[in-house]
Every structure is written in structure tokens, then in C-alpha cells.
Design a protein around this nucleic acid. Structure first.
Lengths: 145, 145
DNA sequence: CACCTTGTTGCGAAAATTCGCAATAAACAA
DNA sequence: TTGTTTATTGCGAATTTTCGCAACAAGGTG
């Protein structure tokens, strides 16, 4: 999956933020590395290209790009965080606590649920990414109750 | 909220695990400290009672009790983890990304959704606790789109 | 192009979390 | 009660993540 660089840059500048080479490198890295990439994945990748780019910056930029809704935070089964490109069409995950596998869900399955939360609780669920934890086909039998 | 100590102890021993003073202290602490307590909260609390109880043990026991479904893991908006007593009747959270507030949801709101995931994807969503992120009544206007 | 303003970075230190391993102590059997 | 087994703890080191602050540089202005 890819991202529209110029559009993102415009959006950032319009909000008073700056487009730095570090941010571009990190965003590119997440993009290339695929789904649910960890901060360490990103650091390893960008560090080869820009050896002075620090770990702190990786964490800060990942956090920042998530706030800007350019990336989405993915909770893994063990509690660790990963990131992925938010993209125009949201999607969601079923995360297996046993084998750590990820199953992708189309956004449609959440639409009615989201609307219900909106009307009943006046709470706007973040559409960019939602994770559910549980047990997948292969693991639900062996995992016990 | 409280927990049935003897029942829990019996369950642990039956599975081949041991009931240690550390585990009891930590479980009591989570119980007393209420919803979404952090590892540091727990450590501060138990450390007064048992000064030799180490941080590593706190983390390990919290993780362990979660695996045993005695505690439930709560994802906070900033990605940090907290814990709370799982309890017999599951409940869920709407977590506001702006003000970090927690709104509790009864289990009923998830029932149909859970059944749908079960039949459509053969995936059993963990009922003990689910968190949704987004923006609450107070923050949804100011937070922008 | 030179100059400001202030958002960002890098660095090193601090804090949070995990790991490895020897010592300890639950649980159970006799 | 004593002994045996092995799950669990504590400790210190390693790793991951965050913080504070001075130096830097992106974006705007004249």
C-alpha cells in the first residue's frame, strides 16, 4: 500500500506542522514494511538509510503520525504496539491471543455497531482501526473454554 | 469489587499453578485500586506491604492472572496497559483519545456483534473485555473531523 | 536571499518493561 | 512432619520507551 505524499505534506503544513526528512523516511518505512510494523522494525529500516536518526524520533513520529490519522495504532495480543498506514478505507483486525495471527475485517462489519454507539452514547468510535482479541479457528478448540 | 479468593485458589491449584503470597497481594491490590490500574500503581501499593516484592514479579503476575482470565487487560488511549478484575459479568470500555476518560459499556451491546463474528469468521471474541477508541461527547466537537 | 519564529531532532539520562538464572518455597506424597 | 519436585521469585542486566533540553532547521516574511 502506498500513500499520497504531496497531499499529506500539504495537510501537515496547513496545520502548522513541518515536513521533515525524518518524518518522510519513517512514513515510507511503515508503508514498505506492510501491516503491523513495530517501532523496532521501523528503526532498523530507517537507521540504515539515516544512521543519525534516533530511536526517540521514531517513537515520536509514529505517535505524531497516528494523531494526525495518517497511521493507525495496532494493539498486538501481547500488549505491544504496532502501526500501519491508516488509508482511506478503514479496516479492522481479529487478533488471536494464542497464535498471534491477524485476521482482517472489512469496515462494513462495524458500521451498524458504530452508529449504535454514536446514537446511544454520543461517542464517536475511531473508524481508522479497531482490534478485537480472541481465538481463531485453529486455536479455539485447543485453547479451552 | 471483590473476588472469591478460595474459588480462585482452587482453580489455580487444579491447573498445576501455585498460590503464593505475592500473587494474592497483587490480586488484592488490583481489587482495591479499582478499574484500570497500572503496573506502577500495583507496585507502589504492594511494595509498602512487602518491600522485597520486585517489579518483575508485578509484571509477571499481572500477565499471568490475565492469562488465567482472572484479570482483564485494558488498553489505554496512549497505548499503555492497565488491568482490572475480570469479574463474572464482562464489561467494555469506550476510551476517549482526547481526554483519556473511560465510559463503561454493558456486555449486552456486544452480544450480537460477537455472535456475528463467531458465525461469519469462526472467531471467538474474548468476552472479558473490549476497548473502543474514539472521542466522547465533550471532545468530539473540539477534536475536529 | 537573509532573517525570524518556533516546531523538531539528537543526545544522554531516566523510566518502564522484559529476561536469565540461581535460590526459594508451594504442593503433594509418604 | 520430612522430603521431593518444580513452579515462582528476586536480583541484576538487558531492552524498550519516554523525557528534558540545547542545537538545528522548516516555513514564512520582507
Amino acid at each position: 500500500m502506498s500513500h499520497n505524499t504531496t497531499e499529506i505534506n500539504r495537510q501537515l503544513r496547513k496545520s502548522g506542522y513541518r515536513v521533515t526528512p525524518q518524518r518522510q523516511l519513517i512514513l515510507d518505512a511503515v508503508c514498505q514494511l506492510g501491516d503491523h510494523v513495530t517501532p523496532e522494525d521501523v528503526y532498523d529500516h530507517v537507521h540504515r538509510i539515516a544512521p543519525t536518526l534516533s530511536r526517540a524520533t521514531v517513537y515520536r513520529v509514529l505517535h505524531f503520525l497516528t494523531e494526525q490519522r495518517i497511521l493507525a495504532m495496532v494493539h498486538m495480543a501481547d500488549g505491544r504496539l504496532a502501526y500501519e498506514l491508516a488509508g482511506p478505507e478503514p479496516h479492522h483486525h481479529l487478533v488471536c491471543r494464542s497464535c498471534d495471527s491477524l485476521l482482517e475485517l472489512p469496515h462494513s462489519v462495524l458500521r451498524s455497531f458504530r452508529r449504535a454507539m454514536d446514537t446511544q452514547y454520543d461517542f464517536e468510535i475511531d473508524v481508522s482501526h479497531v482490534s478485537f482479541f480472541g481465538h481463531c479457528t485453529d486455536c479455539r478448540d485447543t485453547a479451552g473454554a
